[in-house]
């Protein structure tokens, strides 16, 4: 999905002379074409993420639409005050591109487990937050961001998922019954779809845009279900579970919200995200187990 987003930015640079690409020395074999084709609208600021955000604010002062690229944890955690003050307070249309999400960097340890970053970004009111779950959503995302003219953060999972073939902010894949709903985003959508493949009664709600939530669509989608599982590779309080708790406090529904998510950092080494999905019950079999337990009461 990263390729769709980066290539889309590159394509827009041809006709939109305001688009500016900035990297904090990340993106080997990916970002070189920006420098080659548009050297005057490309900057590698080095491994200096705070400066990257400040530089983007300065570029926005000149009317540019900067896209700032690095690994998600560096983009968000490292630069929180810059994002708050230099992007948020100024409402500058800067897009932070964060690569790797959740346990994408599984064996690299807890500093690189990105399970708490978009919740940090969510605390700043101006920022739209996206986490594409499929290539079809990723392919249209940059165009939409350029139309909105607002600060944005894209949490870019590793992977190129074909399913779901849909580019809506919220995609409702209805099951045969209106009982169990799995709500998810990013890579874990694939695990939810796997659950549905084995049990077609289960429904899946894919949330590609985490903020703002499309409230009417969300309300219509949530209303019929009795058990709503929020499956995420992010701490639940600041994640989608937290957002939905806040939402149902305003628009009460009959269903019960159940969080499936990591609750703490771990020092475990896992050679792939699968290890952590298994550990926290986020893979298809873990989700199915949780459904079974809840149904047993």
């Amino acid at each position: 999905m990263r390729e769709q987003i980066i290539n889309s930015i590159y394509t827009h640079m041809k006709d939109n002379s305001d688009v500016f690409f900035v990297t904090a020395d990340m993106g080997i074999n990916l970002v070189e074409k920006f420098q080659e084709t548009y050297p005057e609208r490309y900057a590698n600021v080095g491994i200096a993420e705070q400066n990257m955000v400040g530089v983007c604010a300065g570029l926005a002062n000149l009317g540019y639409r900067p896209f700032a690229y690095t690994i998600s944890n560096f983009a968000i955690h490292r630069c929180f005050e810059q994002i708050r003050n230099d992007i948020g307070i100024h409402n500058y249309p800067i897009t932070l591109l964060g690569t790797s999400t959740g346990y994408d960097n599984a064996p690299l340890g807890p500093t690189h487990h990105i399970i708490d970053e978009w919740g940090v970004a969510k605390s700043i009111p101006q920022i739209d937050i996206y986490c594409p779950s499929s290539v079809s959503y990723a392919a249209r995302l940059v165009e939409r961001i350029l139309e909105r003219n607002k600060p944005a953060y894209i949490r870019i999972p590793k992977g190129n998922h074909e399913q779901p073939v849909a580019d809506d902010h919220i995609v409702h894949i209805e099951g045969q019954k209106q009982d169990i709903l799995l709500v998810s985003y990013g890579n874990l959508v694939q695990e939810c779809l796997e659950v549905r493949k084995k049990d077609p009664s289960v429904s899946v709600l894919v949330v590609n845009r985490l903020r703002p939530l499309d409230e009417q669509v969300l309300k219509n989608a949530l209303v019929p279900y009795k058990k709503i599982f929020i499956v995420e590779d992010h701490f639940p309080e600041s994640g989608l579970y937290g957002s939905l708790c806040e939402f149902v406090a305003r628009y009460p529904i009959q269903g019960r919200l159940i969080s499936l998510a990591p609750r703490d950092y771990t020092m475990d080494v896992g050679t792939s995200p699968k290890y952590f999905f298994e550990k926290y019950g986020l893979n298809a079999s873990g989700i199915a187990r949780s459904i079974e337990q809840v149904l047993k009461g």
Partner: peptide
């Protein structure tokens, strides 16, 4: 640009200088 937290304005200034050249 609004400032107050230290070590911010100078980075924005660098971005302005880069943008002006661009």
């Amino acid at each position: 640009h609004s400032t107050g937290a230290l070590g911010h304005g100078i980075n924005v200034a660098v971005g302005c200088a880069l943008g002006m050249r661009s």
